[in-house]
Design a protein around this nucleic acid. Sequence first.
DNA 1: CTGTATCCCTCTGGATACTG
DNA 2: CAGTATCCAGAGGGATACAG
Lengths: 140, 140
Amino acid sequence: MSVGHTGITSQVSPPAPVGPCGEGDCGIRDVLDRIGDRWTVLVLVELSKGVRRFRELQRAIPGISQRMLTLTTRRLCRDGLVERTAYPTIPPQVDYRLTAVGRSLADTVFGLADWSAAHKDTIAAARQRWDAEHPSGQPD
Amino acid sequence: MSVGHTGITSQVSPPAPVGPCGEGDCGIRDVLDRIGDRWTVLVLVELSKGVRRFRELQRAIPGISQRMLTLTTRRLCRDGLVERTAYPTIPPQVDYRLTAVGRSLADTVFGLADWSAAHKDTIAAARQRWDAEHPSGQPD
DNA sequence: CTGTATCCCTCTGGATACTG
DNA sequence: CAGTATCCAGAGGGATACAG
């Protein structure tokens, strides 16, 4: 074989000593499918402060619509992360509280919050630098 | 005041002893906006195993399209989580590797993976139970 | 108060084709 | 190989009205 390329392409991909989890995905996508949406973590965080009623949650989480709060709490209930208690009063009253599993998830999520707090400045700086060096428009 | 309700509604919302972070959101949404999409964590996980070329990443992450891999890696670069090295060879070669900050994020994300592994069965069970008790259709 | 039901719009991301 | 450009479908989620 003669020229045309540098030979670098003949390297395949040798090292690859796998990370903490054996292969590709681990179960990370599972968690993210559960908390990656716009509202779930906010509900989790609010409920980590104590029992909340429907309306209290809505007031505590500024932009959330009635519809999304209903959907979000229901999904959390379905997964056993939140417990719902309805009192047959008039007007009706419904309490939401974290289950043990839900609390453990909330704690894990706070790990992300810690990371965010620790690195948000660094990231903001990197982003500014990148944007300055790439005036060619939008990042997407 | 006479009847009409049970009096329960007069309770406002007394306790609320705030969680780990002072108020509402913390920076959790920041992180989730960064990793909550379909592909970012998968790229992070793959890169946590070592340096990877564009094509290697694509092969390692089954469903990802060329377009999404480009967008995902670029966003990671922009935030300083991934470093891109391009060699002006023919055909071109580009390496991606985690920065120190990127590695710390990957580590944090693995915390989610641990949680997922520890609770996936419990959650699957809760979900099955809920679906059995609510035959009325879809959860959304 | 606690939901449910509709409508509708945006944004993400997949498929495909093309360039250097 | 690495990346860009275009088109397009579907999910997520907001606004609103209605119900128990």
